[in-house]
């Protein structure tokens, strides 16, 4: 009952919804960068939405399924293939024992999530299975997957599948997930230092495009645009920052903090990307351009509530489909 890593990917780690309750000790939450794709991949295979999944970047690992499994890919499109045949994303797929999963090309998005029915066996640290690379704890030995690692699965193989000659069988449904993602425009609510931007910079912040730099990673996205300036220098004392916080660096450029961000920071907080847009942001790649549009806190709360409710509905529909399919 395992997946064998045949060829190592760039950064493939076990992640869940994150490690909360320890930020006062400087331990960041980590967790999946795109929790929407993570949860949908789980829903597709009948798992709880919070089940730890495999998060992969491009180039992603080559994986041998050593048993027949029910799996789903969600998030980025890395042109997945099973034994050389194109594999649809966003479908639950039954995979024949011995099949090899490869990813050929990064078409869209930055991270793909692989969920298997029943989930992986991974280690928990401080109530989360997310991999913390600094501490080297949680997930798979606290590190990214490497060649020859065996990722064990919690449930027995789907031996009863009738594959005949096929190496995989996509189940005939796919959720409509477009409503969960936004385009390149990210809504924010103003941060504590937003009003310190001078008027030219405040306009630039909302009217200009910013390019995501190559130095972007799971800690945060570095942006490149016209310099922004504060109208008067404000003495900053470090305090807590959160996922989505947009900080202004001393060189006039912006950074947006993401899953592996430090728990505290001392740079001016220009704004905060709203929670329901974080998943979309996590699928943007270096070189792509984004812009910002201001919204209100009540609107941000409402959008997050709706997104979570829609996820729940999607999960219910997936569960119903899976149950009916396997009954017949």
């Amino acid at each position: 009952m395992s997946l064998l890593i045949h060829k190592q990917g760039l950064l493939d780690t076990i992640q869940d919804t994150g490690r909360y309750g320890y930020q006062h000790l400087g331990i960041n939450t980590g967790g999946a960068m795109d929790t929407i794709a993570m949860k949908i991949s789980n829903a597709l295979v009948g798992n709880s939405l919070e089940e730890p999944v495999l998060e992969m970047h491009f180039p992603a690992a080559e994986i041998v399924f050593e048993e027949a499994v029910l799996m789903a890919l969600c998030g980025a499109d890395f042109t997945a293939e099973i034994n050389g045949e194109a594999l649809p994303v966003l479908h639950p797929v039954m995979i024949q024992k011995g099949s090899v999963l490869k990813f050929k090309k990064n078409v869209t998005g930055a991270r793909v999530y692989l969920a298997v029915s029943g989930g992986y066996i991974s280690s928990e640290w401080l109530n989360s299975n997310s991999t913390n690379l600094t501490v080297k704890a949680g997930g798979f030995e606290g590190r990214p997957l490497q060649k020859n690692d065996r990722l064990l699965l919690t449930r027995n193989a789907f031996d009863t599948f009738l594959f005949k000659d096929a190496s995989f069988i996509p189940l005939p449904w796919s959720p409509n997930f477009s409503g969960f993602y936004t385009n390149h425009t990210f809504q924010f609510i103003p941060g504590a230092e937003y009003h310190y931007l001078n008027s030219v910079s405040a306009k630039r912040f909302e009217n200009n495009y910013f390019t995501i730099l190559l130095q972007s990673n799971r800690m945060g996205y570095r942006l490149k645009g016209e310099n922004l300036e504060l109208q008067n220098h404000k003495e900053m004392i470090s305090s807590a920052v959160t996922k989505g916080t947009i900080q202004l660096l001393p060189d006039g450029q912006l950074i947006i903090l993401l899953a592996d961000h430090q728990t505290t920071g001392g740079y001016p907080r220009i704004g905060h990307v709203i929670s329901s847009h974080i998943a979309s942001l996590a699928q943007m790649r270096a070189g792509e351009k984004i812009d910002f549009r201001q919204t209100t806190l009540p609107d941000a709360e409402e959008q997050l509530f709706k997104q979570q409710r829609d996820l729940q509905l999607l999960q219910n529909a997936c569960t119903f489909r899976l149950q009916s399919y396997f009954k017949n």
Binding site: Y22, I237, Q308
Partner: peptide, 22 residues
């Protein structure tokens, strides 16, 4: 409430907006 983070002169409370909004 998911996290409480003390700093020099501030305390930040992280909460589950979607859960509370129900």
């Amino acid at each position: 409430v998911k996290d409480i983070i003390p700093a020099y002169h501030t305390l930040t409370i992280v909460y589950d907006t979607a859960l509370l909004r129900k």
